[in-house]
Design a protein around this nucleic acid. Structure first.
Lengths: 219, 219
DNA sequence: GTAACGCCGTGACAAGATTCACAGCATCAT
DNA sequence: ATGATGCTGTGAATCTTGTCACGGCGTTAC
């Protein structure tokens, strides 16, 4: 719990997946779950699940597995911390709107509190239930809302400039949808969501699979 | 080419990033580039770049670095193969439309040839320049268009069922935007793009106040 | 009561990814 | 020439990540 500093990024991602599945289980009234069931739902091995859960201080029983409610609480505490966290969306283009719709439809520990765009036509309007501010208001809104995390969905050429603005407005984590590498200070965490790269990767392996089938297929 | 079967997924992703940057350089008339320049643009180390480029058969010179045009050609050949590849989009909700807009605005080696949706109101319409078909037409369209890769942007509860349909329609690679783990045969490659998990990860590290990404020292 | 079972927690191990470090080479300055 | 420079390509070392295997312990069956 203490050393969140040395947490592996991948482990954090998987913990999020477990949490989501546990949430499902909880709403369905399930109250205990085995590591191999979580593993199946998350697409990893049971050993991996158990190893990951060590960081939140495991409380599994050998007979019933993990108590869903209790584990969910622990994961929430570990991942989200005590307080509700607010997030900003920057760039209200078509992708930005999709993200807004996607996030607001989902529940609670993370909420998009404000949106920002440089287009004067959008400023002042409420889009997908979220007020759109001018970029200049960023520092104030971020400070007032305690926003430390931003979703960046602006066109690639603007991404770096806007990222710099975000950092000076106090943002410490950025989910970057623009297809460029952002240069930020070391205390800012950037996660790239690069749809085209993902697509190219999948296309690559889908193509390789052709040869795989033709040439040799084991197992 | 060589054994693309054993290629690391991460390496393929980085090669895509290099390719994109090389494309930029080429359009700007730059005709040679050093590994450390590519590294800066991609957010990795120079050694990593050189190591990655080994798989496409490096041709760097010690004095001018890499020839942009030549390296770009090699990367294109390696990543995209000889033929143009077609892709399908399944699920034309707001996210699907954003993806359509995002991809069609970008150029060439990968094109979204067809869209699919279960909503009868959308079927037959042309959205973002792409014709929307009924799900039932999937196998035919995929076969005719030689589509082996799909972008899956349907609601989570439907994702698994649709994925099964895709696989039986001959799809061998899926970019999955739904927040669920898809169970597919081993010859199908799935890449998850999970916006909520990415956001949670970033929020976690932003809260921890730790460095996520190293800033590489310049020039 | 006790033997057998199945699962968790974890140390040890293996596999994989990245970085280091240096040979080899073309170029340039002197 | 000849030494210095600065880059690439790559084996080896290091660091990271995932897997294995087994002790321990409730529970259940008999």
């Amino acid at each position: 719990m203490l050393d969140q500093f040395r947490m592996s990024e991948r482990t954090v991602g998987r913990l999020g997946v477990y949490r989501r599945h546990l949430y499902h289980l909880a709403t369905e009234g399930v109250n205990s779950v085995y590591s191999h069931q979580l593993a199946l739902a998350a697409g990893v091995t049971a050993a991996q699940v158990r190893r990951d859960l060590m960081v939140v201080g495991s409380n599994g029983s050998s007979t019933r597995g993990y108590d869903v409610r209790s584990l969910l609480t622990r994961l929430e505490a570990f991942l989200s911390g005590p307080a509700h966290q607010n997030v900003a969306l920057v760039g209200v283009g078509i992708l930005g709107r999709a993200i807004l719709a996607y996030c607001t439809s989902r529940s609670g520990h993370l909420a998009i509190l404000a949106a920002f765009d440089s287009d004067p036509d959008k400023v002042g309007r409420v889009i997908q239930g979220c007020r759109c501010h001018a970029m200049a208001e960023m520092p104030d809104v971020a400070a007032q809302g305690g926003i430390r995390t931003a979703l960046l969905a602006v066109p690639a050429p603007e991404a770096q400039v806007v990222a710099d603005q975000l950092v000076s407005a106090g943002i410490r984590g950025i989910v970057n949808f623009a297809p460029v590498h952002l240069r930020v200070p070391p205390f800012v965490h950037v996660e790239n969501v690069d749809i085209m790269i993902s697509l190219e990767k999948v296309a690559f392996f889908a193509r390789s699979g052709i040869a795989g089938e033709e040439v040799l297929e084991e197992v």
